[in-house]
Design a protein around this nucleic acid. Structure first.
Length: 315
DNA sequence: TCAGAGAGACCTCTATGTCT
DNA sequence: AGACATAGAGGTCTCTCTGA
């Protein structure tokens, strides 16, 4: 079957989520919830899942504050957001990736690296959405791509040896290098709790939006910088697990993220001046990944949910 | 190729401080 | 007094790298 490189990357990215123990276990429960919210799997129903993500997430919530909950909860929230963004993006040129060296092309990784004098500090645990440019290599069968690497040498599509594997990362590295200025990067900071953690996205957004510092803080390395790409944004997505009634437009935690470049979101319906539903991020930050809107692209692709897209785990 | 070690990131709840 | 903000405590999970 023909697969373009973007869908190949999406498949790897989503499949990797299921290798996480907590996500794998939780998804057994979430799947039922998801299917009951989207009985007909229309594009509208699937996109509106964004209004219910927190609700779904909370079905596996356990009381208490054991360290397992700490560790697992955060990773699981990040994973379900990644899963949702990829589901809504099928057939488009955007892919959400939970941070992983193996999947994020090197030029992207380099561009978002923050250097604190000599110390290299990657924000290691965010979701990254890459929007690839509208060029033929991203649409044709991935096995027909001809591209040269940064040194001008053709990239071999398969590894050597008895069981040749497709060189996904190497091909992506070469493409991202070649098309760097036309790529969009959107970083998404996920937190289950809002009020305790609002400073973190606020401060990282400040760092990424600053053009220069006086004290040896720089962004980017190896010649790649977010200053040279087509679009960059930083956003915040929370459940939130704290009491919802205590969050108002005037709360400190709301104000802290009210100005970040990509916006602030939660897995609930939009509430004015507080947070937008995560589904609004699709339109606000990721709409350039296709000529048509999400409703249209999804409607076509969802027909193949049980054949080509089984890796989402819904069938 | 795989196991093991190390690094880094994960969140909830209570107590205490601070402002109105 | 009440509302809100913050610090602090604490074990586990996942990824990556290294050496066998």
């Amino acid at each position: 079957m023909m697969t373009n490189i973007i869908e190949a990357l999406r498949q790897e990215s989503v499949a990797k989520l299921f290798t996480g123990k907590v996500f794998f276990r939780s998804f057994e429960t979430w799947k039922g919830e998801i299917n009951s919210i989207t009985p007909n799997k229309t594009s509208r129903q699937v996109i509106d899942l964004g209004d219910h993500l927190s609700e779904i997430f909370r079905t596996t919530r356990t009381a208490g504050r054991g360290q397992g909950d700490v560790s697992g909860g955060g990773a699981a929230w990040e994973s379900i957001v990644c899963w949702y963004l990829n589901l809504c993006s099928i057939g488009r040129r955007s892919v959400a990736i939970k941070h992983s060296r193996a999947l994020i092309p090197d030029p992207i990784c380099d561009a978002i690296t923050v250097n604190y004098r000599n110390f290299v500090s990657n924000t290691e645990s965010d979701l990254i959405v890459i929007v690839f440019p509208d060029k033929p290599e991203y649409q044709i069968d991935k096995e027909l791509i001809h591209v040269n690497d940064a040194n001008g040498r053709p990239v071999p599509l398969f590894s050597q040896g008895r069981n040749p594997k497709y060189n996904l990362k190497a091909v992506l590295n070469a493409l991202c290098h070649r098309d760097f200025s036309e790529i969009e990067i959107h970083i998404i900071q996920c937190k289950t709790n809002w009020n305790d953690n609002a400073q973190i996205p606020m401060l990282w957004d400040m760092i990424y939006s600053a053009t220069n510092f006086r004290n040896n803080v720089t962004i980017g390395r190896n010649g790649y910088s977010i200053a040279n790409i087509a679009q960059f944004s930083y956003s915040f997505v929370t459940v939130p697990t704290s009491r919802i009634t205590s969050i108002t437009p005037n709360s400190t935690c709301v104000k802290r993220v009210s100005n970040i470049s990509g916006g602030n979101y939660w897995g609930r319906p939009t509430q004015n001046n507080v947070a937008s539903s995560i589904k609004e991020m699709l339109l606000r930050n990721l709409s350039r990944g296709h000529g048509q809107n999400f409703l249209t692209t999804l409607q076509t692709e969802l027909q193949r949910l049980n054949t080509e897209y089984t890796f989402f785990g819904l069938s």
